[in-house]
Amino acid sequence: MFVLVNLKAYPCDHLEVARAAADVADDTGVRVGVAPQAAHLSAVADTGVETWAQHVSPNDYGSHTGSTLAEAAADAGATGTLLNHSENRLKLADIDGSVQAAERAGLETCVCANNPAQIGAAAALGPDAVAVEPPELIGTGTPVSQADPDVVTGAVDAAAAVDESVDVYCGAGISTGDDVTAASDLGATGVLLASGVAKADDPEAALRDLVSGAK
């Protein structure tokens, strides 16, 4: 089970979270990753934690001011990237371009989507993983596995119908070990969360609770 923590643009201590995640991963053997702001990628990667970019752009080298070049993210220490998060939606052609850019730079990819139909479309683009995240549940503390478990099983089935090698992660409202267990029971191979760790008073305790539910 993969636990991927998206720090978004929260005013958290990215190094505290990264060090806690690295320690928890080392202690438990559970795969834990952290996705910080682009400017913090190098510092987070230096802690030894698995580091993901929150986004990479679909372009190659060139005149692309304001873009997040996949190669630059990799050079900073990222090993993977999120794409098409509900807070940073992309056109289908741009998702495809970003997946290709990430692959060119050797980055693992996870494309986010709202529902099973979108998961199927995302899986067809050939990412390593997809993450189903109903936007209305993001940040609520109510996991999709509890609010609407059919969304998770439907996403797993939709991805498998396109490409069985694509992993399916469960996002939106994940905050406890029980949520992680529920996601696993529904067929997900990872969870994507943010506020449950980034806003926690004790990020390490929150992480240890989360990985307690990993299978």
Rank of each mutant, 00 (worst) to 15 (best):
R89K: 15
L69M: 05
A38P: 10
N59I: 00
S67T: 04
H55G: 03
W52C: 01
A38R: 08
P58E: 03
G48I: 07
S57M: 04
D94M: 10
A70P: 00
T51C: 05
N88G: 14
N84D: 12
S63K: 01
H40K: 10
Y61M: 05
L92M: 04
A76L: 13
T51V: 02
A38Y: 13
T47M: 04
A72V: 14
K91S: 10
A76G: 06
W52S: 03
G77F: 08
Y61A: 15
A73N: 05
S86L: 08
G66S: 07
G48K: 08
E87I: 04
V44Q: 06
A76Q: 12
T47Q: 01
A45F: 04
P58Y: 08
E50V: 13
D60F: 05
H40G: 00
L69H: 11
L92T: 13
I95N: 09
A73G: 06
D46T: 10
D94S: 14
S86P: 10
A45R: 06
Y61E: 14
L92R: 14
Q54W: 04
V56N: 01
H85K: 08
K91L: 14
T68Y: 11
A45V: 02
N88W: 14
T47R: 06
S57I: 02
G77D: 07
A53S: 15
K91A: 12
Q54N: 04
V49G: 12
P36V: 07
V56I: 07
E71H: 09
N88F: 15
D75F: 03
A76C: 11
D94N: 13
H55S: 06
A38C: 06
A78P: 12
S67F: 00
A43S: 05
